[in-house]
Design a protein around this nucleic acid. Structure first.
Lengths: 255, 255
DNA sequence: CTCCTCTACTGTTATATAGGAGTTGCCGGC
DNA sequence: GCCGGCAACTCCTATATAACAGTAGAGGAG
């Protein structure tokens, strides 16, 4: 293994390249330890700060994780949740579980939801646009954090026009069997279609904490609008999830 | 503006927080310059390295961009390309442009495609699985970089089973009017459906360079499989695009 | 007026050093 | 055997310093 201090490529990047290579080629398996900063600095003959920067590069790429006092190891990837558009078809919804619960069940992970907020709030722009109402007018929100397999999986806010949920268990902690979509349909709002909009970005500090994200892991923001047969938007589902735990799949016709 | 060196929160993060705040609140508009490293270090009374790290945090969050010799400025966001699933319907395809060209046209951006590779390659696992063939068996690939508005927008590799493209212009630089889908249909493979799979992650070094990605910008990897009326996968489209320039929209029925 | 060069700014890489803080395991006292 | 404490390891923050490289503008030579 050669480091050329006179190369065009900075030393810290050369060191990062070296370990990226080992990881890509599988010679450093997930869970395997990388040399400590001090060891790196000795074996490559560079200053501590330079060794540290090399590891920093790999961290920011999400290839390794480092724990204070314990060292740096190749990142282990958990299972990926495949979110297919078919999960929201009526047949699947009829199975009795809300969307997320069913997803987790299919992976064999235990499921939990933690209610963060339940009540009326002024509609943010993004939500108001999709519900076809004035920005700032009151809407009902169910704001929660979904857990699967003991880890936080997504932050999910569901927004409803007030007139649709009055007197339903949607305003309660437990929206009842089949989730809130079932309640809306019981109330005569048969769901006709969904629109999902996805965007990937880096997480905010808060999101990082709430989702226990490792450095270098982006998030996917998914906004789903549920439309009833009358063409009315009856729910906007606004969520943020860890990109390394979710894969999205959509099937659609070619004509 | 106060920095507390004895705080629990590291100094460099406190400085980053300060500017993140200014940016979030709009007091530092997109394009506005942040103080130089030297200035920061003077006004906050910290070492140069510390000031530098603060800016590094903001860079990694994608909030600012810095140019060597010119300083650090609040990031300006370009327009977002909205990729709706309807863009691939037959009606839209019939308009005569390939998918990407039509997308760019709709935004009023000029379009260019740069061919990177054209020829047979052994099928990587990911592709073979979707084409229902053996991993490593030969497939034809069109590997290109798509440009829009003078900027690289995506890396796109299209893979085809060999028997489908022999003697068609798909093997040439220019696949002809309507793109390769039109050629496949002319040949009797009427497209029935698409499957798109999306996943967000941080880019590799190569992708960063090829897409001219700013630090802290994730990419979205989109794999589209085109299925003909006989149920055969006739193309796998494997692409990588900058997350901050693309938004994905899917509409689908609720039953 | 145009072109070049010099200079003062900007960020970039690398060094050396120091003290702090989390983790682990060993070893001795009980 | 158990427990406490210490030592040796890990990473983390911060300082100071140096040389290098890209940018932009001022000012002089032609």
């Amino acid at each position: 293994m050669e480091i050329d201090p006179n190369s065009d490529r900075p030393v810290f990047k050369q060191i990062a390249d070296h370990f990226r290579d080992l990881i890509d080629r599988g010679e450093l398996a997930p869970g395997a330890a990388l040399p400590s900063e001090a060891q790196l600095s000795r074996t490559f003959g560079v200053a501590g700060g330079t060794a540290r920067r090399a590891l920093e590069v790999l961290r920011s790429e999400g290839l390794v994780v480092t724990e204070h006092g314990r060292g740096t190891r190749v990142r282990e990837r958990g299972p990926m949740l495949r979110l297919a558009s078919q999960r929201l078809t009526r047949a699947n919804r009829a199975a009795g579980l809300g969307g997320f619960a069913a997803d987790m069940r299919s992976l064999g992970l235990d499921y939990k939801q933690e209610m963060l907020h339940l009540g009326e709030v002024p509609a943010p722009r993004r939500i108001a646009e999709r519900l076809n109402i004035e920005e700032g007018s009151p809407v009902f929100v169910r704001r929660r954090r979904m857990w699967g397999g003991g880890e936080p999986m997504q932050l999910a806010d569901s927004y409803y026009p007030l007139d649709l949920i009055e007197g339903t268990p949607i305003t309660e902690e437990n929206a009842g069997p089949g989730g809130s979509y079932a309640r809306l349909e019981e109330r005569g709002h048969r769901l006709a279609s969904f629109r999902e909009e996805l965007q990937a970005r880096m997480p905010s500090e808060d999101e990082k904490k709430a989702l226990r994200l490792l450095p270098g892991v982006p998030v996917v923001a998914l906004v789903r609008t549920a439309i009833d047969t009358g063409g009315r938007a009856v729910e906007v589902f606004d969520s943020v999830m860890s990109a390394d735990k979710h894969l999205f799949q959509y099937d659609f016709a070619a004509d």
